[in-house]
Design a protein around this nucleic acid. Structure first.
Lengths: 337, 337
DNA sequence: GTGAAAGCGCTAACAA
DNA sequence: TTGTTAGCGCTTTCAC
């Protein structure tokens, strides 16, 4: 059987389309008798409004795109979870867009060949420069997530990476550590994320009265647990010693834990370690990981607030919003006593 | 400025809408001169076809929904990654739908109040019974993922959990372990996933010539690393001893590793451990985790194959497809030598 | 090879 | 309170 349309319902119920539409939308001005009669026909026929028709007519799709490198990266899957929940509570559904962290993938996000599919886009770029983002005269409302620097024209929400990295570093210093390294940034060209965290690390050292020792910077060939494990392992093999490590993210920290334990170093006794992102497993590693937790729920709300305003027509300059974070002390670098 | 429509392009180029449409779609029967002229206007105006208009006219939305409990669960985020990639390569985009593992959430997936938004649905139920799934006379093509038993009428793709659990158990037995436990199933009522893995575990014991010892079944109050850690910890505290554990999934295995190490048990020397799902971190735990890896890429392909056929109009009975898995030996339960 | 016009299913302004 | 009707932007016969 062909699908039932609004018009069919109207015809069979012997009323106009408008009336059926009113009933479907629970409009106030419908007489009870009419409402009941129409509703019965709707139920009998099993009528379901067609989403596309409505969307075409209203110009709103009720869809938002969430774009980032890869959902299987724990931070992003957590982000997807909270954004999806927050979006739903606002009546939106979420389209998942993976860029694989490639320039082409990121370009595809902004230069959609088809317009009108989504009402707005939340995008966490990995590699695209802010000038390139600015150039894409996007017709669709956009809010940027994460550390990459955003053009003046677009909204942006992030945490204060420098302050957080500084806090992590000082946390380690407060434990009496003095040879504090940094693990997991890219070489030779860092992502903006790594760059900011490195700056914060350096700032933290200064505040703690420690000197930056370039040899304690342990870059890794990729942003992954494996790469970090290798970087830390190689450093230990060549005799480098340190008593604490600030890791770029939890994945790097997990790799670091492994590299240390494989070589008989105890965490936190010999080396204290901090991660970043508070991915769910950080409580269950052994030792559990001290980490920086961004307020992702707050981030999702802020981002959706701004996006909603853009969708509603706001045209002002880009707003830059900072959301909270906190350092969560766990076993790998407990709170100083 | 208002958005540019196909009609605007046609008017300015001085041709009909059909011709513009032909150019946009690279239809063969357009004279080169015409094509070039129209293309120039398209470029000048920056025309982008409106997705909704096209979709309404063709009746295809190009969207697929992927529904499961929670993207932040590592297995699901991995699933989302491969399905999203596979879907894109077929010209589809993915709508993310989280059910939170609740009955209401799962019902919402099947009883969409609006029709026509997505062309098809991939759904991994957690709690819904197959009879309830069957009842939902879904108008939209559906393929079920995972272990939950599926009604005869719908397509279903899964791995052979019983065989895999049996293999994991025998793998441990081949290491000379004889007191092999099972960790992480729910109590008192197991999910279908746990149920099948328990059956396979029992089968594996039999094949290895071992007897099932009910006291070695360590259920946990939830499916999580934390719950498993607690279950294993409590068992050890009350003096229970075992030399190997089959864990329901990698999260349970990670919790198990932690519970063992906290109490001074060495893995794999004292207790060998297997996980399930091959989540990305299993290579970087210490020790790394032996685990069952489903062929998720194959699963995604199969599921999309079947879904495509349904979308194309196939109306036959539900097909049940089994995809490959393999046991990946790592440090927590190395290959027998 | 190109054009005219009739939908796709729904909404909303305007009438009645 | 209910009905009429003109779109929303695109596709697609069917003529020319």
């Amino acid at each position: 059987m062909a699908r039932i349309r609004l018009e069919d319902v109207a015809k069979i119920a012997g009323v106009s389309m408008k009336t059926v539409s009113n009933v479907v939308h629970d409009y106030p001005h419908v007489s009870p008798g009419m409402r009941e009669r129409v509703q019965r026909v709707i139920d009998e026929l099993g009528y379901r409004p067609n989403a596309l028709g409505r969307r075409l007519a209203t110009g709103k799709t009720g869809l938002l795109a969430l774009a980032f490198a890869d959902v299987s990266i724990p931070y992003f899957s957590e982000l997807a979870r909270v954004v999806s929940a927050a979006a739903r509570s606002r009546g939106y559904r979420l389209l998942l867009e993976q860029t694989d962290g490639t320039l082409d993938g990121e370009r595809a996000v902004l230069s959609e060949s088809e317009a009108g599919l989504v009402d707005g886009v939340l995008f966490q770029p990995s590699v695209m420069s802010s000038t390139e983002i600015a150039k894409h005269r996007s017709d669709v409302p956009l809010v940027l997530l994460g550390e990459a620097s955003a053009p003046l024209s677009v909204d942006h929400v992030m945490i204060d990476n420098i302050a957080a990295a500084s806090e992590a570093t000082q946390h380690l210093a407060a434990l009496g550590r003095s040879r504090i390294g940094f693990v997991g940034h890219e070489e030779p060209r860092q992502s903006e994320t790594s760059r900011q965290r490195l700056i914060g690390y350096q700032e933290g050292l200064e505040k703690a009265g420690l000197r930056l020792d370039m040899s304690l910077l342990l870059p890794s060939y990729a942003v992954s647990a494996e790469a970090a494990a290798q970087a830390v392992g190689a450093a230990l093999e060549r005799g480098l010693r340190f008593d604490a490590l600030v890791c770029r993210d939890d994945l790097a920290a997990i790799g670091t834990l492994r590299a240390l334990k494989e070589r008989g170093f105890d965490v936190p006794r010999d080396v204290a370690v901090t991660g970043w992102d508070n991915i769910s497993l950080t409580s269950y590693t052994y030792p559990s990981l001290t980490t920086i937790a961004a307020d992702t729920a707050g981030l999702a709300e802020k981002a959706l607030d701004m996006l909603s305003e853009r969708i509603a027509g706001f045209e002002g300059l880009g707003r830059h919003t900072i959301v909270d974070y906190r350092l969560i002390p766990r076993e790998s670098a407990p709170a100083a006593t």
